[in-house]
Structures are given as C-alpha cells and as structure tokens.
Computed example of a mutant assay.
Amino acid sequence: MDDNRVWTFEESLWTGDAEHYRASIDDECLMVLPQPPFVMSGGEAIEAVAATPRWSSVEITDRRIARPEEGLIVVAYHARATKDDGPGYEAHCTSTYRRRAHEDWLVVQHQQTPPLAITAAA
C-alpha cells in the first residue's frame, strides 16, 4: 500500500460509517483508547467504536510510516477531529495494519493518547 493510500485508509477509519469500520478492523485487533474500559480487543473494540457517532472530518499531521517487514505497516500521527454538531477531539495515535492478501489490509492495533495539559512549575 503506497503512502497516499495509507493516509486515505486511516482517515476513513475516523469518518467512515460503522460497516466500513467493521470491515477494516481485524477480529484480533487490540486498541487502547483514552476512556473506559481503555483496553479493548477484537469484537469489543469494533462494537465500541462502530457504535459511536462518526467524525465529520479529521486533520492528520506529523505523519510517520514504518514498514518493518513485508505485509506489515505501522503509522503514527497527530489527529484533530471535528463533528458538525459537537466538540472536537485531539490525540496522538498509532495504528498497525496486516496484509491478508493483495490490497487487502486490516487494522490489528490502534492507540490514542490525548495531549497532556502542561503546567508551569510554580
């Protein structure tokens, strides 16, 4: 998968419908999200995310891609997502994709870390 397709695929995971999400996530996927239950696996992760309202748009910056071996892609980035009718969301993220067949990729890992509030020492 070339770099442009990687980022288009990652963006679609934020904005696509629930069926697209279910079709893109491996049953054995592990996720760490910044809200309880924090760590999810397989169908639990798929259902938790598929059941939430989708983002209207996402801006992905600080993009990094690694290909540690054939059939494996790891991405890291900063996401800023918005909804038409609600507050936005920001996080530093990673995802790992595994190739099942030619041009057939699934997410096997995803993690989101919101930026920490930095306070000055008194």
Rank of each mutant, 00 (worst) to 15 (best):
H20L: 14
A101T: 09
E11V: 01
T113R: 03
T113K: 02
H20D: 01
V39N: 12
A18N: 08
P53C: 03
V6M: 03
A121K: 11
I25L: 00
V6A: 03
V6K: 06
R99T: 08
Y97C: 05
W14P: 10
R5M: 03
F9N: 09
K83E: 05
V74G: 04
P53S: 09
V32Q: 09
H20P: 03
Y97I: 01
S41Q: 10
D17I: 01
R64Q: 13
E90F: 01
L72N: 05
E44T: 12
N4D: 15
T52V: 00
R64K: 14
T94M: 10
I25S: 01
L72C: 11
R64D: 07
D104L: 09
C93G: 09
A117Y: 05
D104G: 01
A117C: 00
D17K: 08
L72P: 02
V39T: 15
D62P: 01
G71N: 05
M31Q: 05
C93M: 09
I25W: 00
E28W: 00
P37L: 09
R99A: 11
W105N: 04
E90C: 10
A117R: 12
E28M: 04
F38T: 06
M40S: 13
H110G: 02
Q109M: 11
T61N: 08
G88M: 03
S12L: 09
C29P: 02
F38W: 15
S41C: 02
M31H: 06
I46M: 04
P34W: 05
